[in-house]
């Protein structure tokens, strides 16, 4: 995934998928998003970090589903039928992100991304690359590489 270079090389405009967790709006670069699916039940993983909901079956592929809310420190999501799983491809791995709802696909100006506010907690600093301002809301750009489960969390 050389999205870093991609983002620099392509013109400034990029497309993002915006979604909500609780009251907050977040976004992913559309290049990472494979598809968006409704909630399906998952298989619980033993010894998994609390934000890993379980494994899901995506047409024969087995991939982990992460509770993005839990990962971002916003509390546990109780999946319901309205919940959505964003299937993303990051660092050669496919992963599902459990979020409350997908709101829009937006075209934004790359240069418009503002740095994460200084008030950030360590977690915010690690997982949020920056924010886009849309009308009166801000959309938080997720750092997909950081958000993935890190290998050392579950030592084999």
């Amino acid at each position: 995934m050389s999205d870093q270079t991609n983002e620099e090389q392509t013109e400034d405009r990029i497309e993002i998928v915006s979604f909500t967790i609780g009251e907050q709006a977040f976004c992913l670069n559309i290049g990472h998003v494979l598809e968006i699916r409704g909630w399906t039940s998952t298989t619980t993983l033993p010894h998994a970090p609390d934000y890993v909901v379980g494994m899901m079956n995506l047409r024969g592929a087995v991939l982990p589903v992460m509770d993005l809310s839990m990962r971002l420190g916003l509390g546990k999501t109780v999946p319901e039928s309205r919940s959505v799983i964003i299937i993303a491809h990051i660092d050669k791995k496919s992963v599902g992100f459990l979020v409350d709802a997908v709101s829009n696909i937006l075209t934004v100006n790359q240069a418009d991304m503002q740095p994460t506010p200084e008030v950030s907690s360590a977690r915010t600093a690690a997982f949020i690359r920056g924010v886009y301002t849309m009308d009166d809301t801000i959309v938080r750009a997720i750092d997909v590489h950081q958000i993935m489960p890190q290998d050392n969390l579950v030592a084999a």
């Binding site: 039940s41 998952t42 298989t43 993983l45 033993p46 010894h47 998994a48 890993v52 379980g54 494994m55 899901m56 079956n57 024969g60 592929a61 087995v62 991939l63 982990p64 791995k93 496919s94 992963v95 489960p149 290998d151 579950v154 084999a156």
Partner: peptide, 25 residues
């Protein structure tokens, strides 16, 4: 395999998909 999209899990060798589409470890 679990490593492909995730990582290895102690005590679990791999996963499989059952007839009902559910995943079993």
């Amino acid at each position: 395999g679990l490593e492909q999209n995730y990582q290895s899990i102690p005590g679990i060798a791999a996963a499989t998909i059952l007839g009902n589409g559910k995943i079993a470890l």
